[in-house]
Design a protein around this nucleic acid. Structure first.
Lengths: 247, 247
DNA sequence: CGACCGAACTGGTAAAGACCACCCTTGGCT
DNA sequence: AGCCAAGGGTGGTCTTTACCAGTTCGGTCG
């Protein structure tokens, strides 16, 4: 409106709206309604298409559910039903054929903070090393890995250490960390803008989200990793054996 | 505006535009450019937002690729490289807790045809039973299963047989089919319109596509199943154990 | 008292216009 | 010949305005 400047830079209204909605979602419980689109527009000072675009994003991610004529509601909690279990040996391995390399995008240490401290089983003030790397096979980006590990475990680790070779091998050989077990969940998702850029796929492309907690022989948490794998180039293959049976 | 009727029904402009674009894509080769958005608007007599919404859809499906400042291009062919392999044991089992039920949506027998015959290892003229069922847990739709099996194996099977209980148990008890192994691939996808309706999730919601080939003790193919699981309610959990290690 | 119907919400779709950010090309200048 | 800046093309974002389509609920009429 009106004269000039000061609207040029804004950092994308849609992002601002999305953040606002995320806060709002955080404060509410699944099933609860959020304000109507028109109210939110007034509240945020944006047009309805802009607002709707933001809601579209969140709906695609399952955080919101729209119901025509009724309203928009907080999405159901992801049940994390311990649906699958009973794994007895590794079922997944990176492709043996291609040549894996990684490009380190971030490499920094910071205090754990409450959430990470809990999940890594360290104190909130302990430094945690955060490494983000793009994993590449045959010059093609395949996955983005966001790794968190207690910095104390791997003091002296440098970015080039993370660019090739087996990280677990390195942990054992150089740092004496005896990686033993991991619990991993896999769920489908779609790429956001950043991920799409890095992976060279369209935004909202199907992808797999791996979340892995790795422990050493003593049961200490060694690593917490969230990885996004391209859906168009990656699939999980498994062989099932039935003794009794299932549904 | 103006007089009346005849604009009420229209079948959604966006769909009309999408169909137009699909035709256009069919005529071109990957990498080729399509006309500019503004040209297409004039051509089709729709506004740019409407046109862009249609292009958004197709881009999400990977059929088009937009490049800022350059144009919009036909997407690359889907390569479906088989990258992962080396599964050694079972890692996945359906949830034991909730109460699974199924609603049979289709149940019909037809000649296999070339493709199915090959995959089921029967002759193309052999009848194949196709069952589509919606799997429900606690009144909530969880997955759509499309099952194909040689009709000869299960003559006398009725739709109610597929609505509850363990299908594999039934196969063994009633038909003497000794289900033994399965090879399964899992990949991420997004729901299409029909799937979204059935599962009660938005279109383009993240989902898991399971494809399973099941064999009996004699190595005969018993079943070929493609299932779509809701991504917001379903995740795979697995526990990994390292002897040597991996990347 | 009950069934209906309509007002007033809700989200869904669409138009038209403006301006920004990016890319490539071209033409002028060095 | 080579460099560089400007222009005109592309897609990207946003606003404003309008109307359609389900849902709900309360008032009215039978």
């Amino acid at each position: 409106m009106s004269t000039s400047a000061l609207n040029a830079r804004a950092g994308l209204k849609r992002d601002r709206v999305r953040d606002y909605l995320l806060d709002l979602i955080g404060d509410k419980r699944p099933g609860e309604a959020i304000p109507s689109e028109r109210d939110l527009c007034r509240e945020l000072g944006v047009s309805r298409p802009t607002l709707r675009a933001a809601i579209d994003d969140l709906e695609r991610q399952g955080m919101l559910v729209r119901e025509h004529g009724r309203g928009t509601f907080i999405g159901p909690r992801k049940v994390t039903q311990q649906l699958a279990a009973t794994a007895t040996s590794s079922f997944y391995a990176p492709p043996a054929d291609g040549h894996w390399l990684s490009r380190v995008l971030e490499f920094e240490s910071a205090p754990a903070g409450a959430r990470l401290a809990h999940r890594l089983q360290v104190s909130p003030a302990d430094p945690v090393l955060r490494v983000v790397r793009l994993r590449v096979v045959d010059d093609e980006p395949m996955a983005i890995e966001r790794i968190h590990l207690p910095h104390a475990l791997v003091s002296g680790l440098t970015p080039p250490d993370m660019e090739s070779g087996s990280f677990y091998q390195l942990l054992r050989a150089r740092f004496g960390v005896d990686v033993r077990t991991a619990i991993q969940t896999i769920e489908p998702t779609v790429t956001d803008e950043t991920e799409a850029d890095l992976l060279g796929v369209p935004q909202y492309a199907p992808a797999l989200l791996f979340e892995r907690t790795t422990r050493d022989a003593a049961g200490r948490v060694v690593e917490l990793t969230r990885s996004i794998y391209r859906g168009d180039r990656y699939r999980i293959t498994s062989e099932l054996h039935f003794d009794a049976d299932s549904g």
